[in-house]
């Protein structure tokens, strides 16, 4: 399947005329795009361009805050996310990694076992197996395998971020949303996580919001450029970086001539 050219693959996420408002402040203005299966879709853009808001609309995190209003349509596998009666089932198919690692106040093991437990896995052997697999894939297993029972919050920042990635993987998600995951992670660890993401592409669709233009270049199949709530441009990452752009502002941003 991965051999199939990108734009011939099925659409995993379809976004049509998506607008997001906080009160009367527009955070995202009438955006339409689609994200294909097994693609890493990069989103770049300066602060306040609406990247995080975009991610929050995908798994209906807006419903947690009263002041966030979402208009338009986001569809997962062609099915409008608003029409999912069970929002929890929707969210469990979508893994999220936040900019700053949120180690739940649980042990390392419990952090990863939480989501399988929530979906009803009780068998200890099976849980052990899931925990080991997810931690290994997040490139963390070797560092923590002897201290699975210590608190997740005692890990270093970079380790905690890998723990949250392991936790997201434990959901066995179809879609992984990453919001500036490397903001609190050192460059070496960042590279290791990037390698992990390249492998994960075989199994899931990844939306990668990043403030590192070069990170999008290294990882993303396609990249979208958001600016002040507008989708300025979306295209094959190679094309954008070969300056085959439609909008001058994209070049300016990629070359760091901005603001």
């Amino acid at each position: 399947m991965v051999e199939t050219p990108l734009l011939e693959r099925p659409k995993k996420l379809t976004v049509e005329n998506l607008s997001i408002l906080y009160g009367d402040q527009v955070a995202l203005n009438d955006i339409s795009l689609d994200i294909r299966e097994n693609e890493i879709f990069g989103i770049i853009g300066p602060a306040n361009s609406g990247k995080t808001s975009f991610l929050r609309a995908i798994n209906r995190m807006d419903e947690m805050s009263d002041d966030m209003l979402v208009r338009g349509k986001v569809a997962l596998d062609g099915c409008d996310v608003r029409s999912w009666r069970n929002v929890y089932a929707l969210r469990s198919r979508i893994g999220v990694v936040f900019p700053l690692p949120v180690g739940l106040p649980l042990t390392i093991y419990e952090n990863v076992a939480l989501s399988p437990r929530l979906r009803g896995v009780r068998n200890k052997v099976e849980l052990d197996e899931i925990v080991e697999r997810c931690l290994s894939r997040a490139a963390l297993w070797d560092e923590v395998k002897d201290r699975l029972d210590s608190l997740g919050s005692l890990l270093s920042g970079g380790q905690q971020q890998r723990l949250t990635i392991a936790r997201a993987l434990s959901q066995e998600p179809d879609v992984l949303l990453l919001d500036e995951f490397s903001i609190a992670v050192d460059p070496v660890t960042t590279m290791r996580i990037e390698d992990v993401l390249k492998e994960l592409r075989e199994e899931m669709t990844i939306v990668l919001v990043t403030n590192l233009v070069q990170q999008a270049r290294r990882l993303a199949d396609r990249t979208a450029f958001f600016l002040g709530g507008e989708l300025v441009e979306v295209g094959m990452t190679e094309d954008l970086f070969r300056r085959q752009v439609k909008d001058q502002r994209t070049t300016d941003y990629l070359e760091g001539r901005f603001g």
Partner: peptide
């Protein structure tokens, strides 16, 4: 709140969030 948000993002229901994350902490 970040705990609640992270747990909800995992697909936990409100009650599961309270039971598994909020009350223990």
């Amino acid at each position: 709140d970040s705990y609640r948000e992270a747990a909800e993002a995992l697909g936990a229901t409100r009650w599961q969030v309270i039971r598994q994350v909020v009350l223990p902490s």
